[in-house]
Amino acid sequence: MEALVKKRILQVLKGDQDAYGEIVELYKDKVYQISYRMLGNRHEAEDIAQEAFIRAFINIHSFNIDLKFSTWLFRIATNLCIDRIRKKKPDYYLDAEVAGTDGLNMYSQIPSKTDMPEKEIESLELEETIQSEILKLPEKYRTVIVLKYIEELSLIEISKILNLPIGTVKTRIHRGREALRKQLRHV
């Protein structure tokens, strides 16, 4: 896959935008997933994921073709997410968590039209709980946990994406795990 991506990048460098479309197709789910788990909101996640691809396109000439493209792309995406978390504007979205309600969002105010099977509701609730617990982590732990356990990347790769020494990445994963353990212990 890396070889194909490199071929497409060379085409993009020559100015061929269609080739970039294929790159977007290949990585859109992963980039969107990182953004969603980091930000906890589909609207914002889509916005940031799109932004990441656009930034990557604009700066593609500065990408070192000998490196892994996904590492570079994920770095752009995580940096954008971190920026967004740090200067989080008081935007209001329906699926944003309502303060003080412990995981409820505005959608929960809208009555559901379909009767969902009990099990499905349970698993949805569990997933929401996990997601909201991830979102409660400080952003530096959240990033490593998302990259490690949702994107399933290696420590070396995470250290490259975040431009941090591997020791720091390890420490953050350990602390992130401990924090999550305390939050999820009674689930």
């Binding site: 935008q17 970039y20 479309g21 977007v24 197709e25 859109k28 789910d29 980039v31 969107y32 997933q33 969603y36 788990r37 589909r42 889509e46 994921a49 799109q50 691809f53 656009i54 396109f57 569990l126 997933e127 996990i130 997601q131 991830i134 946990i145 356990y149 949702i150 795990r177 999550l180 353990r181 999820l184 212990r185 689930v187």
Partner: peptide, 25 residues
């Protein structure tokens, strides 16, 4: 904890994501 985090289903980008990106290039 790890099992729980990993159990979250993999989500997919919205439909038309690629065309939305291409339109903004």
């Amino acid at each position: 904890t790890i099992a729980l985090v990993q159990s979250t289903s993999h989500i997919q980008a919205p439909v038309n994501f690629t065309s939305a990106v291409m339109a903004r290039l």
